[in-house]
Structure formats: C-alpha cells, structure tokens
Amino acid sequence: MSASTSTPHLPAYAAILRHAVLLVTGALVLIPFVWMVSLSVKPPGEIFRAHFSLWPSQFYGVENYTKALTEAPLLRYMGNGLIVCTLILGLQIIVCAPCAYALAKLRFAGRDLLHGLVLIGLLLPHQVLSLPLFILCYQLGILNTYAALVFPYVVSPFGIFLFRQFFKAIPDDVVHAARLDGLSELAIIWRIMVPMALPAVIAFSIFSVVGHWNDLFWPLIAVRDQSLMPPPLGIMAFKNEEAGNDYGPLMAASTLVVLPLVIAFLAAQKWFVEGLAKGAVK
C-alpha cells in the first residue's frame, strides 16, 4: 500500500542550479587530479612556461612515465604495497574472525572483559604506540623487513568489532544447526559465519587495504631500504631525490600510485563508500 516513496521533483530552475553548483564543486575537487595528470604528460619546457593549458602542445607522457618507472623502482613500490596489504588483510581476518565469533556466539567467563579490551584497542591511535612498537621490532630484529611493515597490524580491534556486530546479527539457531550437523567451531567460523557476514568482510577489506596502501607514517619509521618501501614512502623518496624539480616524472609517478585505488573505487563505488563509512567508528 505504501508503494510510493515520493521522490523530490525540483522545479526546472532549481534542478539546473543543483547541477551547476555540483558541477562547479566537483570540478574544484578534481583540480588536483587534473593538474597532476596534465603535468605528467608535459615536457619540462611547457611545465615551466608561465601560461597554462590542460593538454600539452607536445605530448611528453611516454617519456615522463618511462622515467618514473625506470628512475625510481615504482613497480617495486607498488608490488611492496600489494604484498604488505595482502599479508596484513589476510592475517587480520585469520586472527580477528575467530575472536569475533567467540565474542558474538560463545558464553565464557571474561567475555565482557575481552570485549572491553577490544573497545580500548579501538580507541588507541596507532601512531601513539609507534615508539614502543619500533623498539619491539628492533628487539625482534625485524626492522627494515616486510615483517616490520606487517607485524604491528596483524590484529585489528576494528575488525573484531565489525565482525562481532555482523556475527551477532546471525541467528544462534544457525550455529546450533551447524553443530548438530557435526561442524567444528573452526568450520562454523570459516564455512558458515564468514560467508554469511561477507558484506562485513568486504567492508573491512576495503577499509584495511585503503588504509595500509595509503599509510606513510609507519613505513617511514619501519623501513629504510628502497626495495621495501610501499608506494607513499617510495614516492616521497623519489620526490626528495629529484629535489622536486623534475615535475613531469614526479607527477607521472604520483598518478601511477593513486591509480589502482581510484580504479578500484570507480569499479566498486558502493562497496568503497559503505566500507569506509563503516570505518567511521574507528
């Protein structure tokens, strides 16, 4: 009976105004991207000319991008980013999902205490802990390795929190039925709960990957070798080496670093928005 959700019908002038304002703000928001791409295809001469055009009169993209890929180990950086993000995400899910299941579906002494600990962990900004974590990595002898980039993140209080919320929403009867069917607790987690909470897993994955791909703070502390640097740290090193003067290749490198997430975002916009909005509680 209430088949209607009256959708806003703007008068024509208001609709036009809406588009006009949004197009202007959208264009303003996009300027840094446009400028970056524009510089990345210009030859040095045109970049330093005192008038601007979006498209170069002499297309210099090939040279700039080649230079970005050869003078800095850009692909290596991105590979590092991929390795680190994948390892972190995989470990986080492996560590967090069982804990979240215990918190959501099992009764045991100390459950509230454990949940409290998770909430406290959720509240602690990771940067505050960087000094002891640095010392810890030093003691373990893993500084300047992939392990140092991954280790501090193997548990995510936010992951536990989010998974617990989703697991709690799954009826207890599902767990009971699975036990009657002879599944072990681990099998219940990996074959029942996680697949049923797939939206949470996807949201968390996006949150985690975006966060760690873009992170500069910890890699700056944890690694020195160029061959280990994830993209943000790598591109910063590239900028410092070039002293920021060779804009074309620098912009090309920036474009390449930004590109993977932007493409993923445009392909799965809804999931990204949802996943990152959920991360607001973090």
Partner: peptide
Amino acid sequence: HFLPFMATLTAMAIA
C-alpha cells in the same frame, strides 16, 4: 566528491 578521500594523500600532496 568522494575521490580525494580514496586517493593516496602522499601522492596528492605532491600534486
């Protein structure tokens, strides 16, 4: 409007 939030800030800072 959401795009900047996604983009690697280090790289965008250079831009």
